[in-house]
Design a protein around this nucleic acid. Structure first.
Lengths: 239, 239
DNA sequence: GAGTGGTCTAGACCACCGT
DNA sequence: CGGTGGTCTAGACCACTCC
């Protein structure tokens, strides 16, 4: 006797609560109805309500106090390093118009380091894409991304004009997890020229490995970020 | 007919699975028994097994493929910026012996910026703690932490020799969430002297706000990190 | 089609919080 | 104490993936 529906009940309840928060019907600090009441209101089981709330807790929208209630928390930072993989979204969020230029794409054998990090043998090949991302026309990020040819499943370099995350998803290797190593450096002559900044300007270097749902490493990225363009934010949570 | 027990069934199952992974009884890529079998083996309901697995998925230890199975994933980085709040643990993980020195503690009125970020009025007071953290005796992090006096609930500065997170937990404001703003900079004369490095050395500046379980901001930290001492890692996950 | 994880229910009892 | 979230069960059916 169930109707056809796209989003799950859990998702519907979550969306509804989130709308109440965003719209201000539920203000920061407000106490939510208890779980039994919410279950009644949404005409679902308490387990469904709990799962909906679980997601909002993880995202930081709500807080629970055992024996007391569930409360609306101050909104956490969206577009943070830990939860977003798209720099385009981050640049836009910072109020700039994102754009990008592909400097170069080439197929080549991996270096030993790359082979190790990507789990390849030295006779396999990788695609390397060199790009610069801009905000309002100003260079913000210079990056070199490497994807194993076997992961990509094509040698059509035209594809690479798209977001590499979209390309990887097409190829059946949607990125779900990444590990980034952060290091502050100063610009050398080459990077300074590419990013149109003075040499010795502080930059953030990010070396990142992206993994698909199977845990397989599918992309390796070196990125150089201009410091003052937008905030890099990390949401941290206690273990 | 339930026995007395400390950890929940969910926790017991999770720990057991984690041990199998860490010990190698379950190797990377191995497929786990399906959820019904696991429920049988542990003599719990499938819902309990699913909740156990959920935690291991979030931590990155396992992967699920709908219609296929649950698999052991390569271990994620522990002691990363997003999941750890303790620099002491990070320094030790990097193979160095952590230590620290408190340079100064003082009570004072907050600046307007601090009052805003900490949700205070200008006539309340904050404790400021200035510290240097070392690895193997080498200065690695210089930090200035500010905690509202009302949060601390004491003016006993002797306490502040302990980890501030422990102090905050004692005070009933255990830190569960934090937002960090990362920015690469170069050392000015003062910071260079404190960290015993050359001026203009690249540093990572972190401006962080810590929140307790209620979402209340309980500490504000400015930190200057020496770049080459240990890797700052961020685990990123798709939204 | 067989096997897997994904969703959902209805109900029970426990453990903690504030009054 | 009453109210809240925390844990757990047993069972049902759905949706996807692989062979």
């Amino acid at each position: 006797m169930r109707r056809v529906r796209q989003p799950s009940l859990v998702e519907q309840v979550r969306t509804s609560l989130l709308e109440d928060i965003r719209s201000g019907r539920l203000a920061v600090g407000d106490k939510l109805p208890n779980e039994y009441e919410l279950a009644d209101q949404f005409a679902v089981s308490r387990a469904t309500v709990r799962e909906s709330i679980q997601g909002l807790l993880e995202a930081g929208h709500l807080t629970r106090q055992r024996g007391n209630g569930t409360f609306v928390a101050p909104a956490p930072s969206r577009h943070a390093l830990d939860t977003t993989v798209s720099y385009t979204a981050m640049i836009r969020e910072a109020g700039h118009e994102p754009s990008e230029t592909v400097l170069r794409t080439l197929f080549r054998a991996p270096t030993p380091t790359e082979a190790d990090r990507l789990g390849l043998t030295l006779d396999e090949r990788v695609v390397e894409v060199e790009r610069i991302r801009f905000g309002d026309g100003r260079p913000l990020i210079y990056s070199r991304d490497r994807i194993p040819e076997t992961v990509l499943g094509t040698t059509d370099t035209d594809l690479l004009g798209n977001s590499l995350y979209v390309v990887l998803e097409w190829a059946g290797h949607k990125v779900t997890r990444a590990t980034a190593h952060l290091k502050p450096i100063t610009a050398n002559a080459k990077i300074a020229r590419l990013l149109q900044i003075r040499p010795r300007t502080p930059l953030l270097h990010i070396l990142q490995t992206d993994h698909d749902a199977d845990g397989r490493p599918v992309m390796l990225s070196d990125e150089w970020h201009v410091a003052d363009a937008f905030d890099l934010i990390v949401n941290r949570r206690a273990p």
